[in-house]
Amino acid sequence: MVAPEQIAADNAAMKPSILEIEDLVVEFHQGNKVVRAANHVSLTIRQGETVGIVGESGSGKSVLCRSILRLLPSPPSFVKSGRITFAGRDLLSLPETEMQEIRGADIAMVFQNPMNALNPVWPIGDQITEGERVHRGLGTRAARTRAVELLKRVGIPSPEMRVDEYPHQWSGGMVQRAVIAMAIAGGPKLILADEPTTALDVTIQDQILALLMDLQAATGTTLILVSHDMAVVAETCDRVAVMYAGRIMELAPTADVFAHPRHPYSLGLLRSIPRIDGKGQRLEPIPGQPPSLSELPAGCPFMPRCSFASPACGTSDVPLREVAKGHFSACIKAEEIAAVAL
């Protein structure tokens, strides 16, 4: 019998793609240093799926997310090469005005710090519907009704009473719900959630993740969830991309990555996380520090910290390749790693 998640994955694989990132290189120019924050990233997202992007700070996960929406300031950032295609349109060559339309309606973003994502001197209701008032000419009264409806949908109790309140009157979890309400207001096809629960307590994180998954199930929206927390990704995503030093190291269905990682970096990460159901056995941290993005080593960037490294790893770029069905890894020894128990 085929496992239900396998069926789901196969179904997802047949869906048309909604976002294609091809060979994206993003650089930051800092003085005379060039920091390569995204290094030949290719990623295809299919309609309706949830893709997790995990990585440590400096891995390029947020940069990747922001370059989709062209939200990175330039200078200092520059897209050196690559294409980002969303629903058949090349986002990198769109004029800014069309990009604004896309940001308002088709692609929405949920940020890490909810308190910074809302303007403190405006009522929450006004902010949620601002996009619709600007882009669709929604009237004041209709906007208020709409705001109440949206707040109800994201689970704010008695929204009629609270629609005129200000962000500081709400808790962090409630503000994050409002931010999500703002994101779904335009009926987006794609939601980019950049560490949406990192600033929140675990019980509130639980509520927000449940809300995101509910909304997604109801609307069929595609969701990209950026997180440093592997467990969050494990429980919410269909596929996961593991990033390191601006590259995707491994890309596969979530269960595959967490049960049988095929890249030494993913393996190292999983071995260094204390488990909530663990017995306190000694952790096996990855030795050393991530490389400086302005002085990346030749070949595989993980090589200096990798216990499987061989001289061949340092000679040329190691591209992402399909090592099992739907399972991509950027390691020349991926088959060997797959045999290693966690």
Binding site: T203, D206, Q207, A231, A234, T236, C237, A255, I276, D277
Partner: peptide, 24 residues
């Protein structure tokens, strides 16, 4: 509730039901 809310690595993608409502 706190323990139930913690995401776990071992579990696959699941339908979530928030364990606790509201804030502290």
């Amino acid at each position: 509730s706190l323990l139930a809310a913690v995401p776990r690595l071992g579990t696959a993608k699941r339908k979530r039901q928030a364990v606790l409502q509201g804030d502290i």
